[in-house]
């Protein structure tokens, strides 16, 4: 599915300083019954965000109008658990384009890249710095620069480099997906399949 190209994002951020945010929290299983990719943002963090009578929980960060932006900053081991891509869809659909953490679960990281969300892995120290900056000023502006592979706290200029492989970077910057690439190498795949033991 097509997504918006990602180059440089400047935005305020929503902090979620909790470790091990699993994909069952990001989108509970009972909301995985759709047969189309529509409306997942409404159920992002459903059980943290709403009471059982569907009224918003006042103390949850997404319900606090002070915090907003296209960047979600999470604690260590973000996106663990289920492989449901719906978690990445929910985050994208809600309006986030970038998730920052000191550590991502593997499948979530892959899913994010495939749907056009940039997962940015920073050091524990820099993550702490971001949380503190947002705590001091909820309007803290952050720049995520994909071509340069840097994340910067704009007020102070504090900056860190982040890793991403060249192939995925190129895809994100151009809005390409893997299937275009794979279909172009169909011949190689067919020869490979012909020699397969199974």
């Amino acid at each position: 599915m097509a997504y918006d190209k990602f180059t440089v994002l400047r935005s305020s951020a929503v902090p979620m300083p909790i470790e091990n945010v699993d994909t069952d929290q990001i989108i509970p299983a009972r909301f995985l019954k759709a047969t189309e990719r529509k409306g997942f943002g409404d159920n992002l963090f459903r059980d943290w965000r709403y009471n059982s009578d569907d009224t918003p929980k006042k103390d949850f960060i997404l319900n606090n109008p002070v915090y907003s932006g296209k960047i979600l900053v999470g604690g260590k081991n973000f996106g663990s658990g289920s492989s449901r891509e719906h978690a990445a869809w929910a985050i994208y659909d809600y309006g986030f384009r970038c998730v920052v953490s000191s550590f991502f679960a593997d499948i979530f990281k892959g899913n994010s890249l495939n749907v056009g969300i940039l997962p940015v892995t920073v050091s524990e120290a820099f993550l702490d710095k971001i949380f503190k900056a947002i705590e001091a000023d909820p309007n803290t502006r952050i720049e995520v620069n994909l071509p340069d592979q840097t994340i910067t706290l704009l007020a102070t200029g504090e900056r860190e480099k982040f890793d991403i492989n060249g192939y995925k970077k190129h895809n994100l910057m151009n809005g390409y997906d893997d299937i275009d690439y794979l279909q172009a190498m169909k011949g190689d795949i067919q020869s490979f399949a012909a020699a397969s033991l199974y």
Partner: peptide, 15 residues
């Protein structure tokens, strides 16, 4: 385990 984009990838290309 894989995500749905990858399910589509495998259906389309077996890779």
């Amino acid at each position: 385990g894989i995500g749905t984009s990858e399910v589509e990838m495998v259906l389309a290309s077996q890779c």
